[in-house]
Design a binder for these strands. Sequence first.
DNA 1: TCAATAGTTCAATTATATTGAACTATTGAA
DNA 2: TTCAATAGTTCAATATAATTGAACTATTGA
Lengths: 103, 103
Amino acid sequence: MVQFVHPSIEDITLTGVLSALADPMRLRIVVSMTEKNDCMSCSEAAPCSSMAKSTLSHHFRILREAGIIRTVKVGVENRNFLRGEDINNRFPGLLNEILKYAN
Amino acid sequence: MVQFVHPSIEDITLTGVLSALADPMRLRIVVSMTEKNDCMSCSEAAPCSSMAKSTLSHHFRILREAGIIRTVKVGVENRNFLRGEDINNRFPGLLNEILKYAN
DNA sequence: TCAATAGTTCAATTATATTGAACTATTGAA
DNA sequence: TTCAATAGTTCAATATAATTGAACTATTGA
């Protein structure tokens, strides 16, 4: 059984958030999540990219460990939720400002 | 004679800016520049860090190629200026929002 | 002319990203 | 309850980026 590690709000760092969002694929994932009720599985992201699933899994882990998403295993799939409120508590306005210019 | 390459405003990308600012040392450099009239030389940054000067030179290059600073050779030293207005034209409000939470 | 200063460039090492293959876990159907 | 299908992780290998010391260029000022 895989257990996911999520940082607490106070452990979310600015450079951690920026690093996580500094990758085009990860930024697209976050944008997609805001467009579809803040939830996205790894296999939903796959068709939009030409990446190996191990690479996608890696990207979701980076986002998770930066505190940007929360991953919950539901049945056979992982549901990833944007931690919008947490990030907004930690860095008010930052995420929206970045997403404003993503695409 | 070393010639510096600076991207034009329209060539500044969001992920480029985020990558550049996602490094703690580079973020500190940018913060320092805003605190001291938007100008900083490589040797001014050196005492604040335990980094090799070749590494610092590399960091200034990353910032330059991301469009965040403009480097001008004056005598024996390089003066680096924050391209605050350019970045603000490209992504209004973004840089200030990030700097708000840098330290 | 020459030492000092500022910084770049190079080659080598270290760290991180990407991938295919093998693996675990869950579901749903025979 | 078995077994194939699905979803995703983990591993080992390779490719790409970061870090550094050493050698270099360019400028100044004595």
